[in-house]
Amino acid sequence: MAVIGFVPVRGGSQSIPLKNIRMFCGYPLVYWVVRALSDATSIDRVVVATDSDDIEKVINELSLPKTTVYRRLSSNATDVASTESVMLEYIEYAQLSLTDVFVLAQATSPFTTADSIDGALQLYEAGRYDSLLSCVRQKRFFWNDNGTPMNYDHCHRPRRQDFNGLWMENGAFYVNKVAGIMKERNRLSGIIGIYEMPSHTAVEIDDPDDWLVAELLFRQHNRSCCDKGRIKLFLSDVDGVLTDAGMYYTENGDELKKFNTRDGMGFSLLQQAGVKTGVITTENTAIVDRRAKKLRLNYVIQGKRDGGKLASALDICREEGISIHEVAYIGDDINCLDLLSQVGLAACPSDAVDQVKRIPGIHILSKKGGEGVVRELADYVLSECR
């Protein structure tokens, strides 16, 4: 008997285009549930079923253990196709045993953890249920269309602590045997059990407002949301980040830049922790070369314009054998947007331009450019992400 974690993700999304690989708290949205399944000791293998080249590329770049990509049929990836249709498609394709356990998990529920997956499978293996689903206990008062209360007596309104409420699907995951899925052609069958998850996991990401709420909740309940130990490369812009963006000239026309020494210590601490460091800037000056040499940076890339920053970072990733999601980058202006939108940990000074601050999941630092923002983010990486 095998236990398969199954994540169906389509390339098409009407409300949020390419939602499943849009950056959520430093990683593509689909990463969080795939990582939870991958980390769960009860799961033998993880399958991401997609029709999208872009999603397949992202999953492969993440290099998560036990994880493979299955290219689902386009006919089962339309707006009207059911999730069950792709489940049954894969079961037939992979010739799964009737006794195999199938865990359907949703990418739009990033709050799912390995502990919740293992806990649910432990409950399932006790043998009391034929299938089960994740729910939250909703302590809200519901009413019928005819003006009558559905789940309480309004003449004797209960206190919250005395009120059981109702179970509500949070859409995180469903567990069933292959035999049950094939018999009922449904994710649930037979005697159905409930695995309770925390109330904040009720948030599903179906529209832009959900996204904003989910990120706030995720950061509150997942202090390590930048993923501990995953940052292997730390990159920074120069002007407006390592400097205050001021342009200083002598009477002879020589250009000057003011750097903050605390940033130098930030780079040094990162290097001591085994994190590679570098700068990528659109300018090309001897001043930056001299500063980078003094800081002993691993990479100094200057003169990159028109989207070249992302290409340069990807070149470094290939050289280092890492993913772009294992990179932290600080930028402050629109020429940093492409790279900031792709890295695992994106950050900006407090005085960055508004377009940068609006990047979903970006870490807005408390300091302005030139005031030690690299040191601030370095401390965050080394304390929160280690």
Rank of each mutant, 00 (worst) to 15 (best):
M1V: 08
V3H: 00
G5E: 02
P17E: 14
L18M: 15
L18V: 09
F24H: 03
C25H: 02
W32F: 02
V34G: 01
A36E: 00
A40D: 00
A40P: 01
V47D: 07
V48D: 09
D53V: 08
Y70R: 08
E84M: 14
Y90S: 05
A94P: 05
S109D: 06
P110N: 07
A114V: 03
G119H: 03
G119K: 01
L123N: 08
E125T: 12
A126L: 15
G127W: 02
Y129F: 05
S134T: 15
V136H: 00
R137L: 02
R140W: 06
F142E: 00
F142I: 00
W143H: 02
P149C: 10
N151I: 04
N151M: 02
H156Q: 09
R160M: 14
F163T: 01
G165M: 04
A172H: 12
A172I: 13
Y174E: 10
V178I: 15
G180W: 05
N186V: 10
N186S: 12
L188R: 05
I192D: 05
G193L: 05
A202I: 10
D210S: 09
L212P: 00
L217P: 02
C225E: 06
D227W: 04
K232N: 11
F234Y: 08
V238N: 03
A245G: 06
A245H: 12
Y248R: 14
S268W: 13
Q272Y: 05
G274M: 12
K276W: 06
T281H: 03
T281A: 03
E283D: 11
L295Q: 00
I301P: 03
G308S: 08
L310T: 09
R318V: 12
E320S: 08
G321T: 15
G321R: 13
I324D: 04
G331C: 11
I334Q: 14
R358K: 13
G369M: 13
G370F: 07
V374D: 04
V374N: 04
